[in-house]
Computed example of a mutant assay.
Amino acid sequence: MVKDEYTLVLVKPDGVKTRHIGEIITRIERKGYKIEALKMIQPTEELLRQHYADKVDKPFFPELLEYMTEGPIVGIVVSGTNVIKAIHNMAGATNPVEAEWGTIRGDYGREWPDGNLRNIVHTSDEPSSATKEIKIWFPEFEFTQG
């Protein structure tokens, strides 16, 4: 029997600014997944360094940090069977120009003249990263076996 799992969705500053929070939540709920936790967060450099620990030494990290601190984000913990893969697929390709229509990034993302990659959402890509990321953004969240 496959058990439910948890994943993290972050509606990034561009997704909040362009008012796509409700549409993203609606897509998640229409697929039958459960919203376990939801909050608006002003990301700090400390939280972003934890979240993007594997990218801190990359040359693009300062731009990523600038982008992710442009405004608030909305953090969402979602649960369901195979939810990590499903939500990751629902988000679409990282680059919005390459994302398929019908995905969140394909429908709402785009390139901007400043060169920063603004792609609306972050989604966890595997169980270990989902657990780690949920603990960063939702330290108060209690995982239950379901």
Rank of each mutant, 00 (worst) to 15 (best):
D4W: 03
D4S: 08
D4N: 07
T7G: 06
T7M: 03
L10M: 15
V11H: 12
P13G: 14
G15R: 11
K17Y: 12
R19F: 14
H20A: 08
I21W: 01
G22R: 07
E23S: 04
I24K: 11
R27A: 13
I28H: 04
E29I: 10
E29S: 12
K31C: 01
G32S: 09
G32I: 11
Y33I: 01
I35R: 09
E36L: 07
L38Q: 09
L38H: 12
K39H: 05
M40A: 04
I41N: 11
T44I: 08
E46D: 12
L48F: 06
R49F: 04
H51Y: 04
Y52G: 02
K55S: 01
K55N: 05
V56F: 01
K58N: 10
P59Q: 09
P59W: 10
P59C: 14
F61C: 14
P62N: 05
P62V: 07
L65M: 08
E66K: 15
Y67N: 12
Y67K: 10
T69L: 03
T69Q: 00
P72M: 12
P72Y: 11
I73N: 12
V74A: 13
V74I: 15
V78L: 00
S79P: 15
V83T: 07
I84G: 02
I84K: 05
K85W: 09
A86T: 10
A86N: 08
N89E: 02
M90G: 14
M90H: 12
N95M: 11
P96W: 03
P96S: 11
A99L: 05
W101K: 14
I104L: 04
R105Y: 08
G106T: 01
G106D: 02
G106E: 03
Y108V: 12
E111Q: 10
E111L: 07
W112P: 07
N116T: 15
L117N: 13
R118Q: 08
N119P: 05
N119V: 04
V121F: 06
T123I: 01
T123H: 03
S124N: 03
P127C: 03
S128L: 06
S129D: 13
A130P: 08
T131Q: 00
T131H: 04
E133C: 00
E133Y: 03
I136A: 02
F141D: 03
F141M: 09
F141Y: 15
E142V: 13
